[in-house]
Design a protein around this nucleic acid. Structure first.
Lengths: 145, 145
DNA sequence: CTTGAACCTCAAGTTACTTGAGGTCGCATC
DNA sequence: GATGCGACCTCAAGTAACTTGAGGTTCAAG
């Protein structure tokens, strides 16, 4: 036997979750109800540790809680097809790639803003700042053009 | 004079915001209270259009509503220093770069998962899927190792 | 036996909106 | 002048995924 029991604090530490987050996961049914000590404190096994590590990693990897719920049930049901898991991961990969494209565009816009402002208007009034003007749009203050 | 008045619907269309979002921005004070027709309907000017465009663009660029609030007040106060605007943009740029790094790491992990699963276990039970196993961690099901 | 950290529950707060219910306005048509 | 109907109105509640707070209990050490 090797079931060192973990407190919720120890579990939190080992998984990188916060304590209230673990209780929250239990509340929403992402984790099964924890076993309890006579006094009411939760305790956890190594299996629980593995399961929460899995969940935590999925969340780190950007899966939504609902997606994680699916992944967990997939991982626990030996009859389910592994293609489902892969499809989920693949859909998620596509989403990550879309975000990457957006973020890269955002990065160069911001970079240009900052450089431009430093070069052109450093220290002037904010209403004349090139960043503000770029964001206000090319129409400027013209009217009924 | 050139003040074509816009309905909230037209404003929404031209800025890319949803109608309830505009009302929400008014409610939280990001937009000033709109003027009203006798019947109670809101209407907007070209200036309002420019201001909401600014706000919308800031949001698209990932600034939080609170940051946008600051940017708006900077843009409207001719006495404020433009360096504040630049600093905000720069801080935001740094954050975008952090996210980019994370996302790139995430991308390659997911890519590896998917490729691995396709190559190694396509169609097998999900509990044996390489993705599931990778996410469960290197410890596998060993105990007290 | 006392102290203090860690635990407990329950409720409310957070961000940035979206959705829904139930009712009103304005404009075009008959 | 009635009628239809789409766009508008308000107010309340829902969403994701937690976090924070209040107020009280348990456990382990000294």
């Amino acid at each position: 036997m090797c079931s060192r029991a973990l407190t919720i604090g120890a579990l939190a530490e080992q998984t990188g979750c916060n304590v209230p987050t673990i209780r929250y996961y239990e509340e929403i049914g992402l984790l099964p109800p924890a076993r309890r000590r006579p006094g009411g404190h939760r305790f956890y096994s190594e299996d629980d540790l593995r399961q929460l590590t899995f969940i935590r990693r999925c969340r780190d990897f950007g899966f939504s809680v609902e997606q994680v719920r699916t992944l967990v049930s997939l991982a626990q049901d030996p009859d389910r097809d592994c293609n489902e898991t892969r499809d989920l991961a693949q859909a998620h990969l596509a989403e990550v790639r879309r975000k990457l494209i957006e973020l890269r565009a955002l990065e160069s816009s911001l970079e240009a803003f900052v450089d431009n402002c430093t070069a052109a208007c450093a220290g002037g009034p904010a209403s004349q700042c090139t960043i503000t003007q770029d964001l206000t749009g090319p129409r400027g203050s013209r009217c009924c053009g």
